[in-house]
């Protein structure tokens, strides 16, 4: 079996990251050099972060994240870059996801309605029996 490696997400190249000057660059100036982030902090002008990970797909096994690069650009309250942090997969925590789901309150189409709901095509095998 050959494993298929796939890349997801994006982090800026090292040169681009080095061009970010702590204490000078602001949200606006970064937009052009480093590009919009993969995600943002939760507060209005929260920090920026980029995530890039390599996934290994191997046969029937669930795709496995084998490497993750995370870059966080911290801003102070005036929107000026205060720090650029880099960390990898080892800093992440394995989290057991809660299986609770907020009930959407609207029930779907009944089981039988769906089973016999979409009808229409007659297949050729009806004529020849094999």
């Amino acid at each position: 079996c050959t494993a298929v490696i796939r890349k997801h997400g994006y982090i800026p190249t090292d040169e681009e990251l080095d061009s970010v000057i702590v204490g000078v660059d602001t949200v606006e100036t970064l937009e052009s050099t480093v590009g919009s982030p993969s995600g943002r902090g939760i507060l209005k002008d929260g920090d920026w972060f980029y995530v890039e990970s390599l996934w290994k797909n191997y046969g029937y096994r669930e795709p496995k994240e084998i490497d993750r690069q995370v870059v966080a650009i911290r801003f102070d309250d005036k929107g000026v870059v205060s720090n650029v942090e880099r960390f990898g997969i080892e800093d992440g925590q394995v989290v057991a996801l809660s299986r609770r789901v907020t009930d959407s309150g609207i029930s779907g189409v009944g089981f039988l309605a769906q089973m016999f709901g979409s009808f229409g095509n007659l297949t050729g095998s009806a004529l020849t029996g094999n």
């Binding site: 089973m115 016999f116 009808f119 229409g120 007659l122 297949t123 004529l127 020849t128 029996g129 094999n130």
Partner: peptide
């Protein structure tokens, strides 16, 4: 655009073998 994915075939089949 969804299509009909269920098919109920009810028919007379003729096969030259059987």
């Amino acid at each position: 655009v969804e299509t009909t994915t269920g098919s109920l075939n009810l028919g007379v089949a003729y096969s030259t073998n059987d």
